[in-house]
Design a protein around this nucleic acid. Structure first.
Length: 747
DNA sequence: CATTGTAAAGTTTTT
DNA sequence: CTTTACAATG
């Protein structure tokens, strides 16, 4: 420990310093991107501990994502806060999970409860729909799931939703309420909660139970909420309930970076805060320390197009910096190639390393092509997110057993465990057991165990089962009995090993799967990540590990030590910064996403998302789009994103792809210019300015670059045509007529 | 019951 | 293109 700790106010401007030292009473910090928001929060925590002698144990900093929480923990530690580990820094969900683990009985939850993820949730909702006699064809389960989730985020139970549906005459909500009712029951029977429940039931508990609430008030004296613009009603209520008599609550947010309304986040919480805490100080941080002026101007110009917005000016003392580069590639593949080439160039010409660069995209599916380009050109990359580790099939299968071992009521995971590998227990047998167990007033697992005990004693099957099923079920029961016996004896990693072995998972994976090596690798990684968290008590370790696996979508194995390019979704990029940022796929339908284009609210959120991406860049920003993009394997032409139009042209430079085929650069240039100036995006009806020449199969055509060839296929594409041409050189190409500049050759 | 095949459907973003 | 759903078969 240093004897000369860094002055915690060093390097802060007046507004930041004020935010740090205003430690008493409610505080609202509205902070633009790059204004040192996290810095303020972490310094504030450090200030509280080091200067105001607040015990770190009394401070809770809640964030929205695990990544933000980890970042916060790391930075507090870096500020030489004594006993920094005692500060709670975690997500709302993690906070609630702990609260319920401890006090859950108050709302009818056994402390071994299971947390169901979105897939489990959907499965239960489908079951509930059957019980409620709701037709899945007419009512998509996902839609019902959405309605229920929204209700929960507004702290409404099924009765509340039913009432509201009636008042508002909302037919869909009425149906959802019926499903919701059964869903609640199924969750309760399984001693399980979903993500929304974590929040809702924690609120319920704190609201109804004064003792618990006061307990928390005694425990936490200072509460900080990061990314406040992304909180939903339940989270906001929770924050209010946790605020003790001193009202030491500090929230930090930026309305322009609100990108989670689809998860029911509600920006209005910022307004509510000012109403609920009339004494709150409000501090605005508008100075940007991150981006060059060109980048900042680009961001400001874009976000200015949002109607629902409190205007805020971003200031910087930085110089204009490099131009923002716009490039239209021909296809997604060439878009990726362009990125890779640029990065290689930057690496050679400037002093920029791979780790300084990030590629951001709207949807995870876009990462594949980028990954491909990276590995083709030997660029090291780090994929953030992607298919989340703890949700991989083989991993979930193993976890299913563990969940059941911990919570014997967890029928969802029990069913999953049974179905992993063929054990001769099908739907019919399972249904028989479930019904019989229900009749006996025992859990399904207990039923299975009794069946296997009966078998071992040579008795006839107590449940109505065929003899083959009897054997199969009892074998599974024996397995579970053996595993239960080991549950508290073996360290969790050993337990998983034994489980993989005894449950025949390896054999199953090797016999069935197309890529068994990768699957097994994942299982080894699971074991390793369990081992990492072992402390000595198998019981506690299991609890912690399962909680971790439920709430953490990915393993924290990215090491920043390795110099690698970051591939990341725009959502996940929030809170990060990079010297060089590429945003790919700036196309209508992708960014903004087609599913967010029918309402203005959603569209503005897309714009904010783009804004978040742009403001991640420190020195260089590249905005890319592909003229042709494949969706579901089918390739089609795209329109440039309206967001590109919204940026003043004087801030942008159009790049031609280094090394790209000339013809494509030329063709994209024309298409781009045209689309920017004359295409009317207000209506989807394209102008009949289509090609004058209507091609047909067998035609001889000529192309500027590829020469002469024969049309072998021709399809209408809106007002355009997609033609496949077999050129005389033997090359087969698919081209869009209006951009390929094909000419018919008489012959 | 499980395996195999074919058909259809679907992909926003995260806890 | 990839994953899931469902039907038919052994």
């Amino acid at each position: 420990m240093s004897t000369h700790p860094p002055d915690l106010l060093d390097g802060l401007n007046d507004a930041q310093a004020e935010a740090v030292i205003t430690t008493e009473g409610p505080l609202l910090i509205v902070a633009g991107p790059g204004s040192g928001k996290t810095r303020v929060v972490t310094h504030r925590i450090a200030y509280l501990v080091r200067e105001s002698s607040v015990s770190p144990y009394r401070i809770a900093a809640v964030t929205f994502t695990n990544k933000a929480a980890r970042e916060m923990r790391d930075r507090i530690q870096g500020l030489q806060v004594p006993d920094a580990d005692s500060v709670f820094a975690g997500t709302f969900h993690a906070f609630c999970a702990r609260l319920l683990r401890r006090y859950g009985e108050g709302v009818g939850l056994d402390s071994n409860y299971t947390i169901y993820d979105a897939d489990d949730q959907l499965g239960l909702i489908k079951q509930s729909m059957q019980l409620a006699d709701v037709d899945e064809k007419r009512n998509p389960p996902r839609a019902i799931q959405g309605v229920i989730s929204r209700a929960k985020s507004l702290l409404m139970d099924s009765v509340g939703l039913a009432k509201r549906a009636q008042i508002e005459d909302d037919f869909q909500a009425e149906i959802a309420a019926r499903v919701y009712h059964h869903y609640e029951e199924l969750l309760g029977r399984s001693n399980a909660v979903d993500f929304d429940d974590l929040l809702m039931r924690a609120v319920q508990l704190l609201q109804e139970n004064l003792d618990v609430r006061e307990d928390y008030h005694r425990r936490y004296h200072y509460l900080m909420v990061d990314e406040f613009q992304d909180t939903n009603i339940a989270q906001y209520r929770l924050a209010r309930l946790l605020t003790g008599p001193d009202q030491n609550i500090c929230v930090v947010g930026d309305p322009d970076q609100s990108i989670y309304s689809w998860r029911n986040a509600d920006i209005r919480n910022i307004l509510s805060f000012q109403q609920d805490y009339p004494d709150a100080r409000t501090i605005a941080l508008e100075q940007n320390y991150r981006s060059s002026r060109n980048i900042l101007d680009t961001a400001s110009a874009l976000i200015a197009n949002n109607g629902m917005r409190v205007e805020k000016e971003l200031v910087t003392e930085k110089t204009a910096g490099a131009d923002v580069v716009v490039h239209e590639a021909y296809s997604a593949v060439e878009e990726a190639e362009f990125v890779v080439k640029q990065i290689k160039d930057l690496k050679n010409r400037e002093k920029i390393s791979l780790g300084d660069c990030a590629v951001m995209y709207r949807i995870n599916a876009q990462s594949r092509i980028l990954e491909r380009a990276c590995s083709d050109h030997d660029l090291k990359y780090r994929l953030v997110g992607g298919t989340q580790f703890y949700r991989r099939r083989e991993v979930r299968d193993v976890l299913a057993f563990l969940f059941v071992l911990r919570n014997p009521q967890d029928d969802v995971n029990l069913e999953r465990a049974i179905k992993t590998s063929s054990r001769g227990i099908g739907d019919k047998t399972l249904q028989g057991i479930v019904r019989w167990s229900l009749g006996q007033h025992i859990t399904v697992l207990e039923g299975i165990k009794r069946i296997s005990l009966a078998k071992a004693a040579g008795l006839p099957c107590p449940a109505p089962l065929a003899s083959r099923a009897y054997t199969a079920v009892s074998r599974f029961g024996e397995l579970m009995i053996r595993m239960e016996d080991l549950r508290d004896k073996l360290p969790i990693s050993r337990l998983i090993k034994v489980l993989v072995d005894e449950a025949g998972l390896e054999a199953y994976i090797r016999s069935v799967d197309t890529n068994p090596e990768e699957r097994m690798e994942n299982l080894y990684e699971l074991i390793a990540s369990a081992e990492e968290k072992e402390t000595g008590s198998p019981e506690d370790d299991m609890r912690d590990f399962l909680e971790y696996a439920s709430l953490q979508s990915d393993v924290d194995t990215y090491d920043d030590t390795e110099d690698a390019l970051t591939l990341i979704t725009l959502h996940q990029a929030k809170g990060l910064e990079f010297p060089v940022v590429f945003i790919v796929g700036l196309e209508e339908g992708l960014l903004p996403h087609s599913r967010s284009m029918d309402s203005n609210e959603e569209l503005e959120e897309e714009r904010r998302l783009c804004y978040v991406g742009i403001t991640r860049a420190q020195e260089r920003l590249y905005l890319l789009r592909a003229f042709q993009r494949a969706m579901y394997g089918r390739s089609s032409s795209t329109l440039p994103s309206r967001f590109l139009d919204e940026i003043p042209q004087k801030l942008l430079t159009y790049a031609s792809a280094p090394g790209a085929r000339t013809v494509q650069t030329v063709s994209h240039r024309t298409s781009f210019d045209r689309s920017l100036t004359t295409w009317d995006r207000g209506s989807s009806v394209e102008e009949p300015a289509g090609p004058e020449y209507v091609p047909s199969v067998g035609d001889q055509v000529k192309h500027v670059k590829f020469g002469q060839g024969e049309v072998v296929q021709c399809e209408r594409w809106g007002s355009d045509y997609e033609v496949s041409v077999c050129f005389d050189g033997g090359e087969l190409r698919r081209l869009l007529l209006s951009f390929a500049g094909l000419e018919k050759v008489q012959g």
